[in-house]
């Protein structure tokens, strides 16, 4: 499969998210240990590592999805454009409109395709009237490369689409609220290879507007879509840098073991 990275330049070096000394506890289990990381704007950042290494947990800290788990406790600072998202004044609901999320398994609501995409704009009050909403829905579906496939059946159920289409619908749903960051938790793990390729291509396109953070268990995928890669192991951030450097010239022996398939 071709390397998508060469087609677009890395546009920016400005930091979108800065995480400092992040610790996560599930009850007594110390899931994330003192992680510092900077996520760049308009860049795809991949989190890789063996299962249970904490990469998904850390991802879920970035839009405070861990708040919905009663036993989870987060310490440290995560700054989104220099504002601490764990500040007491921050409403996680408002945060999540800025930091959208796409999940491992496609989870469209049991509503029509249109209503799925319109859900976010409606609750966040992004539109004044129906035509504006129509516009957002169309734009989002186009952005998610789904418009041509569904434009004739916008009011059919979202659950009737194929797996890859469902996942792209979920991406459209997430970008309809015009977020600044998109978090993707193994977005292709439930898809077949062709659908995976489509979604990967889409992720690369999204980089022009958003900062994308993707968790993946596939190193090939990380190599294909991301510009920066972070390797997690046992709750620690072992190594973080340019994707090419991580895969060709890892500094830490643990990264090398993982890349070469000795641990995982």
């Amino acid at each position: 499969m071709k390397d998508l990275r060469v087609e677009r330049d890395v546009q920016t070096e400005t930091n979108k998210i800065e995480a400092r000394g992040v610790q996560v506890f599930y009850g007594t289990n110390h899931a994330i240990k003192d992680v510092d990381v900077d996520i760049l704007d308009k860049t795809v950042t991949a989190f890789i590592g063996p299962s249970g290494c904490g990469k998904s947990t850390f991802l879920r800290c970035l839009n405070r999805m861990n708040d919905t788990v009663a036993s989870a406790r987060v310490e440290g600072k995560i700054l989104l454009e220099n504002e601490d998202i764990y500040d007491a004044r921050v409403d996680p609901v408002q945060l999540r409109a800025k930091v959208g999320m796409v999940f491992q398994k496609p989870n469209p609501f049991p509503k029509s395709i249109y209503d799925n995409v319109a859900y976010g704009p409606r609750i966040h009050g992004l539109t004044r009237n129906k035509s504006e909403l129509d516009e957002i829905v169309e734009k989002s579906l186009r952005r998610a490369a789904l418009w041509n496939e569904v434009k004739d059946r916008l009011h059919a159920g979202g659950t009737g689409l194929s797996g890859g289409q469902q996942q792209r619908l979920c991406i459209a749903r997430a970008i309809a609220t015009s977020p600044e960051v998109l978090l993707m938790d193994e977005p292709c793990s439930a898809l077949d290879p062709i659908a995976t390729a489509q979604v990967e291509e889409l992720i690369d396109e999204l980089r022009t507007d958003y900062s994308v953070v993707i968790v993946t268990h596939s190193m090939q995928q990380a190599a294909r879509v991301s510009q920066r890669t972070a390797f997690f192991h046992l709750g620690n951030l072992v190594e973080y840098g340019e994707t090419g450097q991580i895969f060709t010239n890892p500094k830490d022996p643990r990264t090398e073991s993982y890349i070469s398939g000795r641990i995982g």
Binding site: E83, V90, D91, Q94, L95, H124, G125, L126
Partner: peptide, 14 residues
């Protein structure tokens, strides 16, 4: 309507 890049620390009216 939420303005783009408004501060997270100030809740909007909505």
């Amino acid at each position: 309507l939420p303005q783009k890049s408004e501060s997270l620390l100030v809740p909007s009216k909505l």
